[in-house]
Design a binder for these strands. Structure first.
Length: 377
DNA sequence: CACGCGTGGCT
DNA sequence: TAGCCAAGCGT
């Protein structure tokens, strides 16, 4: 029998139903020893992992699926087998091997980190979370993962998989991200004194293969008998999330100039930031306090050859939801003579060529709203 | 510190 | 089908 005070786990839930024993790390480790996936960066059981390889795999695995990383990891390792070879390379050749993997800041940080480890740490990774955390591209999760997996330290990396497993195991109803500290505390209590690295990997494997976001395969789970969410039949509902606040509505105006030959006036957005480098219909800034009465002045400034009287406001508006704010654009349309030349930094694109442009969905909506006749079938 | 980064898997 | 979205890190 588990002792009282063990996470309150032996209390009867809601005054009814059987007590559920606390989950044990050993149980999960037994499953891991049996079902462990053979991944390129994993060493044979009992083997001593190379911190360089652990680090490389952890960086590649940030935001990236195991199957994808596997295709890149070995090729990368063949070209840069040690941290010295990596640090001696040119950034360009590192980026070349990273091409297609995405999140290229990771590759830049990877290279910077290799240089720093070689120059300032004598080519050896520091073996504490705190020191690892100082290196470029290594945040709280990765520092804990390397400390545990490469150095056998009792650290607790917490990624999205582990948050999900813990939330279900203990039926944490608090929504994310508020639940993060609580989930971390619960995860820390499960970590065994020995094999913390295997335990972390086992948790992530469990989250990736069995305790999946949708339709978890509880029948195969080594912890199914100790999982409170499973007992309550609500595993799939957890973890809950607070719907992220939409952000304040922003408004603006877009000005669609259609030349007699059907070409539409566009420009390129600044290279950085939202929709960076994409093509757009010229328009005002988007702001919470946008005032439609300023629209004609803005149009005049942007596109001087169209006089105010020629702009026709389209009824209604175009709505679009970005990750962090909803946007409502009022659309104005004007015609321009065939020989009209585009203002500075703008150009005319033939209507049928618009599909080949880097035109974001929002801007496609704007065009469709401005020229509805194009879309009738 | 809220935001954006790249890609592929999911519905 | 194409739009949605993951979920570590740096800024």
């Amino acid at each position: 029998m588990t002792l009282a005070g063990d996470a309150g786990r032996t209390k009867r839930r809601g005054g009814s139903g059987p007590a559920i024993p606390a989950p044990s790390a050993q149980n999960l480790l037994r499953w891991y020893d049996r079902e462990r996936r053979d991944l390129p960066w994993r060493v044979a059981p009992g083997g001593r992992p190379d911190p360089y390889r652990v680090w490389l795999s952890e960086i590649m695995l940030q935001q990236t699926r195991v199957e994808t990383v596997a295709r890149y990891y070995e090729r990368f390792l063949a070209r840069f087998p040690t941290i010295e070879t990596l640090a001696a390379a040119r950034l360009d050749s590192v980026l070349k091997l990273w091409a297609g993997l995405g999140y290229y800041a990771r590759a830049r940080n990877l290279y910077a980190c290799a240089c720093e480890v070689v120059l300032r740490h004598d080519g050896r990774f520091p073996d504490t979370e705190e020191a690892l955390r100082e290196l470029p591209g290594i945040g709280p999760y990765t520092a804990a993962a390397i400390a545990a997996i490469a150095f056998g330290r009792k650290a607790t990396p917490v990624d999205g998989n582990i948050e999900r497993v813990i939330a279900r195991l203990f039926a944490i109803e608090t929504p994310l991200p508020a639940a993060k500290p609580e989930l971390r505390r619960l995860a820390e209590r499960l970590v065994p004194d020995e094999r913390a690295g295997d335990f972390a990997q086992a948790m992530m494997d469990l989250g990736a293969t069995i305790c999946t976001p949708k339709r978890p395969d509880c029948a195969l789970c080594p912890w199914n008998e100790v999982c409170i969410a499973r007992a309550r039949g609500e595993a799939e509902e957890l973890p809950r999330r607070t719907p992220k606040s939409e952000g304040a509505l922003r408004r603006g105006a877009a000005f669609v100039v259609v030349r007699e030959d059907g070409a539409v006036l566009v420009r390129r957005r600044p290279r950085e930031g939202l929709l960076g480098g994409m093509t757009e219909i010229p328009g005002t800034d988007w702001s919470a306090d946008f005032d439609l009465r300023n629209a004609s002045r803005a149009a005049n400034r942007l596109i001087p050859f169209v006089s105010a009287i020629e702009w026709r406001r389209r009824p209604g508006s175009v709505r679009h939801v970005f990750t962090h704010f909803p946007l409502e654009l009022t659309v104005f349309v004007a015609s321009a003579p065939k020989e009209t030349e585009a203002p500075r930094e703008m150009r005319f694109v033939k209507r049928e060529r618009l599909d080949g442009e880097a035109l974001p969905t929002l801007m496609r909506k704007v065009v469709a709203h401005a020229l509805p006749e194009d879309h009738q079938t």
